[in-house]
Amino acid sequence: MLGLALAAAGGRARAATYEFVPAPQADLNRVYRVDTVTGEVTSCQYGLQENTVGTTLCFGPGEGAGPQPPSQYGLVATRHLREAGVFRVNHRTGAMSICYVLEDAVVCTPQASAGGAGAPVPAPTTRGTGPTPQAPATGRP
């Protein structure tokens, strides 16, 4: 009896856990899902279908969105109202990648982290090569 209880507990410990995050795009009803252990990312959204209540359209993992080395993964949506993708983050290493739907699958860029392992991060632009940020009007000089 004790052996059965331990086996059942071990099976639950290995069961997949998921995190869900909506796409930040204001006019898109898409939700992303990540397996928090493997980092695999998928997505679903509502689709119209004549003479029915509609359908659920799901997109499986494509390039870069499949299982990654075991770790502790999560999803982060930006506040950018026109962004349809999300960030897959590795909470243990700090690495990140961008995931989005491309045609009929979720794809993710290679994982990267500033100052760490992964793809190189571009150096900041030098002064004078882009617009100058403006400070918010506060009434003070």
Rank of each mutant, 00 (worst) to 15 (best):
A84Y: 04
A65V: 01
P122H: 10
Y18A: 13
L102I: 00
T17P: 00
T138Q: 14
A105R: 15
A15N: 10
Q25K: 12
A26D: 06
G116D: 05
R12F: 13
N51L: 12
G62S: 10
V21N: 01
S97P: 03
T17D: 09
G64Q: 03
G116A: 12
C44Y: 13
E63V: 06
P120V: 00
P70R: 14
G10P: 00
C44I: 08
Y73Q: 02
V76I: 12
G118D: 05
R92C: 01
R140I: 08
T36W: 08
A8Q: 10
Y73N: 02
A112D: 00
A112M: 09
G64K: 02
V37H: 02
G39V: 01
G128C: 05
N90V: 00
C108D: 01
V34G: 09
V31E: 04
H80I: 04
G10V: 04
A119Y: 05
L48D: 13
A7L: 12
T56C: 13
P141W: 02
F59K: 03
V53F: 15
A65K: 01
Y46Q: 11
D104E: 15
T56P: 00
V107R: 15
G62H: 10
T56G: 10
T93M: 13
L28Q: 07
G3H: 08
Q134E: 14
V101L: 04
L57N: 15
P120G: 03
F59E: 01
G11D: 03
V53D: 12
S71D: 10
G62K: 05
P67A: 15
Y100F: 06
L6K: 07
R30C: 01
N90H: 09
